[in-house]
Amino acid sequence: MIKSMTGFGKATCELPGKKISIEIKSLNSKQLDVNMRLPNIYREKDLILRNEIANKLGRGKIDVGFYVDFLGTEKNTSINTQVIENYYNQLLPISDKLGLTEKTDILRAIMPLPDTIKTEQAELNEEEWKIIASTFSKAIECLNEFRNQEGKHLNTDIINRIENIRKLASQTESFENERIERIRERILDQLNELKEKINVDKNRFEQEMIFYLEKLDVTEEKVRLANHLDYFLETINNEEMVGKKLGFITQEIGREINTLGSKANHAEIQKLVIQMKDELEKIKEQNLNIL
């Protein structure tokens, strides 16, 4: 069963002092294109996460976001007392010139200055990382489930359009004899107009007529078209990650439909060919989103 490249997955976990939400969004793309937004503390795991995405999601434009909500005071941030004291001792003698009459005014002037707040780089806790990694895998599973659901809708729509092309191709048979007869009559009428001006070898003319009509025969194109349609259905139902392969098959289907149209020489058959092309274009649009 096919999968869509479009999907969304989200999973959350709670750790001591913080809650982490992981969101993964996927759109269609010819290759794997991963955009990862990670807090600095998890940067060292970037490659591991990318490998998991490549193994489980295949291809697509993948956006990953880690969102951290702290449930209390962040332990890694503290006031740099020594720096503030140094600033205070330097500002106090010139406080009158600066118009800082109160100690609170001096403090307000100090706090925006560099290095008054120090942030210590936390170390990654491996036990916490195991929980986060498991949450990341759950988000991927949710995204894959979304892709599967979208894939079912795509599968139904595309198969219906393939069968529509098959039905339209079969409808050309009712015009085949009429088409050949019209072409034959047109050639004979033109020939009769030229009879008085040129001599015609009847045997040679009949041979050329047979050769010309054989060139206009579309039986071979219809057989190849039917084979391509069968192969398309076989591929879509029995293989995974077939988006690119289905793209190649639709190209072959398009070639046979175009050849059928170029040989038609019949208004009703041309109408059927246009309808087949319309169905095929819609299949190509849907195919762009197949994994």
Rank of each mutant, 00 (worst) to 15 (best):
T250G: 02
E234C: 00
R37W: 06
E173T: 07
I110M: 10
T116V: 13
T73G: 01
T73V: 12
V34Q: 05
S4N: 01
R43I: 03
K18N: 01
C142V: 08
N265S: 14
T259Q: 07
G9K: 00
E102S: 15
K202N: 14
A169K: 09
S4P: 03
E181Q: 14
G72R: 06
G60P: 12
C142L: 12
E221K: 03
I253A: 07
G261R: 05
I183Y: 00
K245N: 11
I79S: 02
T235S: 10
K97S: 15
D96F: 00
T259F: 07
I140E: 06
E279T: 08
F70G: 05
R50V: 07
E176G: 04
K103H: 12
K138P: 06
D115G: 03
N238G: 08
I236A: 04
S29N: 14
R255D: 10
E240P: 12
A169S: 15
E281Y: 07
E185N: 14
E150V: 11
K277D: 02
K97D: 15
Q121W: 02
D115K: 05
K3F: 09
S21N: 11
L91T: 06
K263A: 05
N28A: 13
E163D: 15
K3R: 15
Y231I: 03
T172A: 13
P39N: 04
F175R: 13
T135Q: 04
H266S: 12
G9H: 03
N203E: 10
L191K: 11
K282G: 04
E239H: 12
C13D: 07
K25A: 06
E141P: 02
K3I: 02
I84E: 10
R204I: 13
M5V: 00
E281G: 09
F175T: 09
I236K: 03
L71D: 12
T235F: 05
T81E: 15
R179D: 11
E102H: 09
E178L: 08
E239A: 07
L49A: 01
I84M: 07
K19W: 04
E123T: 15
K245H: 09
G151K: 03
T6R: 02
F136T: 02
N237F: 05
Q82R: 12
N203S: 10
G99D: 05
K138L: 15
A226P: 06
D230L: 08
G151M: 11
L246A: 06
L233H: 00
E120W: 00
L124F: 03
I41N: 04
